[in-house]
Design a protein around this nucleic acid. Structure first.
Lengths: 234, 234
DNA sequence: AGGATTTTTTTGGTATGCCATTCTTGGCGC
DNA sequence: GCGCCAAGAATGGCATACCAAAAAAATCCT
């Protein structure tokens, strides 16, 4: 049975880059490969031979190739001419790079959100924040993670800048695994929670500059530090 | 003769997203379409039928389709399931969005560059800056534009963050036409030049925060304002 | 036996054909 | 005359076949 629905991941942003009303085969294949890559079921550097993969996924080479092109444009695989596709290297250095850019994007989004969001939007963010705090107090890492992602994504979504939103979603996908692992073994959970509190306070005050700064600092401390360690230690 | 080498554009960043050592047919097609799209030889919203385009370009549908997928991932075309590809809308609103994100990325890059670049790198930037000033004094818009782009791209390149560099290059491509037109008819050329002077001074002082701020302000004033006008007025 | 060369095999690149879906248009009924 | 429905035409989606290039393996020569 191909295309098993990977239900064990939580709140991964999918397919914001294009808007396929009814996903075709290429989208399915792309999603499938994307999930397996970001969940590290494929080793970085591993070759992705077209024919064997095609028979495994029970699809033809054509949609597979198109899916690989998409993934290449997203930076998840690297295609060398006449050499085929390999899973892109996800070295700690790469993750740090991407995390840095992500923090920059979220900072910028936060500033826009402070300027543009309605009071109801802010209220909803606060509601989610308190839900997350509840999960924190219950030591419910799963829901904490989900709500945390939701809050960050919403802050970006509220910016109203679709370019920003798409780029953020794309980077977010690529960092999903690091984020997930970071959440599982983050010893400074309480600190992260405090930082979130500060972010929400600044957000309520609509102090865009401050929200952006807190957010960037928060992200930097949470992931970049983690990416310094060996990614493979899972 | 297909694939005429569009030599009339200046210093457009091409193909930083992937690194095809020897460009295959798909890359050629993608480059060709990309150039024509950003140079506005295709109307936004115009359909891109596979068969007719394939015969025009004298290639088969397969590489064409793959090229379109890449362009879709880059945001230049929109592919609807069973509806085909159309040139992505480049409304002033879209351009403003992209320009904003670009300014954010350049700001972040500038901060990294101030921290990481060697003195020689800074010196080279200053050299380019004075070349550009020379072009300004000669009222040589063509070379001014080229050198201006070169300086901005180098500042980003010196950040050392390849993710940032790739994203910047991608956005830069999409904004190429707006930038070009803006350069052709920018009345506040002297102001832009002054801002560039300020940027270089801050860069020499390696004041990352100030460079970033000046840069973002500069970009905002130069393009976002222009994007407010009717893009079609060319 | 070792290395270089040639042959075989694997793999990616491209073209083409068939099928499904969608758009169009002509005809029928209201 | 207007609108709806159906049949045909156009178009995209997918599969397959063939070709070229690169990698691997076997053979031949030294």
């Amino acid at each position: 049975m191909p295309f098993l629905a990977l239900t064990y991941y939580v709140n991964m942003p999918m397919e914001e880059v294009t808007q396929p009303n009814q996903p075709g085969l290429v989208e399915k294949v792309a999603n499938y490969l994307r999930e397996h890559i970001v969940m590290d079921h494929f080793q970085p550097g591993q070759r992705l031979p077209e024919r064997t993969l095609a028979v495994e996924l029970q699809v033809s080479r054509t949609p597979l190739r198109e899916a690989l092109k998409i993934l290449a444009a997203e930076g998840l695989v690297v295609i060398s001419p006449n050499r085929g596709a390999v899973v892109a290297d996800v070295s700690p250095a790469d993750m740090k790079e991407k995390a840095y850019v992500l923090s920059v994007l979220e900072q910028a989004a936060a500033e826009l959100t402070c300027a543009n969001a309605s009071d109801d939007d802010i209220a909803e963010l606060q509601a989610l924040h308190y839900e997350m705090k509840a999960a924190f107090l219950r030591r419910d890492r799963q829901n904490y993670f989900r709500l945390n992602q939701d809050i960050h994504n919403r802050i970006v979504a509220l910016s109203g800048n679709t370019t920003l939103i798409d780029m953020h979603a794309n980077l977010s996908r690529q960092l999903y695994r690091v984020r997930y692992l970071s959440n599982q073994k983050n010893e400074k959970w309480a600190t992260a929670m405090e930082e979130h509190e500060a972010i929400m306070v600044a957000l309520e005050a609509r102090d865009g500059e401050r929200v952006g700064r807190e957010l960037r600092n928060h992200l930097g401390k949470t992931w970049i530090k983690y990416a310094n360690g060996d990614i493979k230690q899972c």
